[in-house]
């Protein structure tokens, strides 16, 4: 598998480290942190995953290269990489909502 790094060009996957599903971190004011809503949002953010069979937006780090953090859109059924962008400045997918995902029949 090769990842087309926007800075370095296509590079072998062993140069990169994957950091899993990319999602916006929940935002709470300091005084809201110890509330059920914040706890639920952080449990969801840290522990729960959509884990789709299909398109997946994830963070990758190009450690043996330009050391950029990347936002990679990849198909988990085929390992095809559809889109790569710098993570900085890009919007991660919206935070947790319970979604029913499309399931290939």
């Amino acid at each position: 598998m090769r990842i087309p790094c926007p800075f370095c060009g296509p590079r072998d996957v062993i140069e990169f480290t994957v950091h899993g599903e990319a999602r916006q971190r929940p935002v709470f004011e300091a005084h809201e942190l110890d509330t059920p809503a914040a706890r639920e949002a952080f449990v969801d953010y840290v522990y729960l995953r959509d884990n789709p069979a299909g398109l997946h937006v994830e963070h990758w780090y190009h450690g043996i290269g330009c050391q950029s953090w990347l936002l990679v859109t990849r198909d988990t059924r085929t390992h095809d990489i559809l889109e790569v962008a710098y993570a900085a400045g890009e919007e991660e997918p919206a935070p947790a909502v319970v979604r029913t995902m499309e399931v290939a029949s």
């Binding site: 899993g20 599903e21 969801d44 522990y47 729960l48 995953r49 959509d50 884990n51 789709p52 069979a53 988990t76 947790a96 319970v98 979604r99 029913t100 995902m101 399931v103």
Partner: peptide, 18 residues
Amino acid sequence: GNSSKVAALAGLRLPIES
């Protein structure tokens, strides 16, 4: 292996990655 896919049919998100 497919728990997330099947659970999603019931609207659930699981602490699992395949």
